[in-house]
């Protein structure tokens, strides 16, 4: 296979030989950047017959770090994530086709192979490069339409997902916050604000929620959204959660007046959602979830520091993200006490 010198590449090639009919080898194996919690490897499968272009099938291996699934409480196992991606793709959503889920005998740990979809995930390029100028005005509406289709899936689509209405989510985030043992008065204010406004709903209102629908997890081409990635945060919850998370200011990358991902207006997102058959958008509830999402990212920043302090990752990058919690504080203050929802 030409990769025998590298034991990891040898194992990938061996697994692929069993997983992809007509596969004769792999090439161009390289680790992609990004994804602190997961490894992502890009490679091409050499194929006999009709698969792929020019006899090459572009794939990705998404794998737990060094294959070891640490089982973080609110994140899906790789195996269950693969099932969610399959369900989403099966329902016509733009999600990569899952080709094979790793088995213990493969010697690669936990992970799965899926199709590699070409396009851009880096927010700064999507928001600034000329190549995406025509796509930018379309993205908010497209995101709305994708979420509307996603939210037609309910708990029966992928059995075993955690059911997480707001009080459960809020309780989980609060437990995490308290475990970090560092006072953030603005976060305390936000917890109170959210607890006082937590919407009540019936179990039947809950749907399959992506949970991390934002830049970095969307593959964008010059024509718009090509695929939704990173389904590890999927759960059964309030559909308004997905409509809010993409507008958290940290995902606007400086374009503060384009709330949806730095590329669009909330009303375009909502119109796309409703036109594609999504339920009527409850704007108060979306605002509620935007406060929640901002708080969740702020506590995520605290978690980055905790990972640094524990010794699990001593990188400057990890430590520095701890000093981004203050970004979410100013956003929370604007949302709660000022004119942050315009």
């Amino acid at each position: 296979m030409g990769t025998d010198a590298d034991p990891f590449a040898g194992l990938v090639g061996k697994a692929i030989a069993g997983a992809i009919p007509g596969a004769t080898g792999i090439a161009n194996l390289k680790r992609l950047s990004g994804g602190a919690n997961k490894e992502t490897w890009s490679f091409d499968v050499r194929c006999d017959g009709a698969q792929g272009k020019n006899g090459l099938l572009p794939l990705v291996l998404r794998r737990a770090p060094r294959g070891v699934d640490v089982g973080r409480s609110n994140l899906l196992s790789l195996e269950r994530e693969a099932a969610v991606v399959q369900a989403a793709a099966g329902a016509g959503l733009p999600a990569p086709r899952v080709r094979y889920v790793l088995q213990p005998d493969d010697g690669l740990g936990h992970g799965f192979f899926m199709d590699r979809i070409e396009g851009e995930t880096l927010a700064r390029r999507i928001l600034r490069d000329e190549a995406f100028a025509a796509a930018r005005p379309l993205l908010a509406g497209q995101c709305g339409a994708i979420l509307a289709r996603l939210h037609r899936l309910t708990a029966s689509a992928v059995p075993g997902l955690r059911v997480a209405p707001i009080l459960t989510e809020l309780g989980n985030v609060r437990t995490l916050y308290r475990s970090y043992r560092h006072p953030h008065p603005v976060f305390a204010l936000a917890f109170r604000w959210l607890a006082e406004r937590a919407p009540a709903y019936a179990q039947t209102d809950l749907v399959l929620v992506h949970g991390d629908f934002r830049h970095g997890n969307l593959i964008i081409g010059p024509e718009g959204v090509r695929a939704v990635l990173d389904w590890e945060g999927a759960h059964i919850g309030d559909p308004m959660e997905d409509l809010a998370w993409i507008s958290v200011n940290s995902w606007r990358f400086g374009n503060i007046d384009q709330p949806v991902g730095g590329f669009g207006q909330r009303e375009d997102l909502f119109a796309g959602y409703e036109a594609a058959g999504g339920r009527t958008v409850d704007r108060d509830r979306v605002r509620f979830w935007e406060v929640y999402g901002t708080l969740r990212w702020g506590i995520g920043c605290m978690g980055m520091y905790a990972t640094f302090a524990s010794g699990a990752d001593r990188s400057v990058e990890r430590a520095a993200i701890g000093r981004r919690a203050s970004e979410t504080e100013i956003d929370l203050l604007a949302l709660i006490t000022g004119k942050g929802w315009a």
């Binding site: 008065p185 100013i330 203050l333």
Partner: peptide, 26 residues
């Protein structure tokens, strides 16, 4: 209280992330 929280947060941002969009706006 609101004035205190805002002032304290603005100081953090002046140190941590002085280029952040919401800080510049504030």
């Amino acid at each position: 209280l609101v004035a205190h929280l805002r002032r304290t947060t603005m100081t953090k941002l002046a140190i941590d992330q002085p280029a952040y969009s919401a800080y510049r706006r504030a």
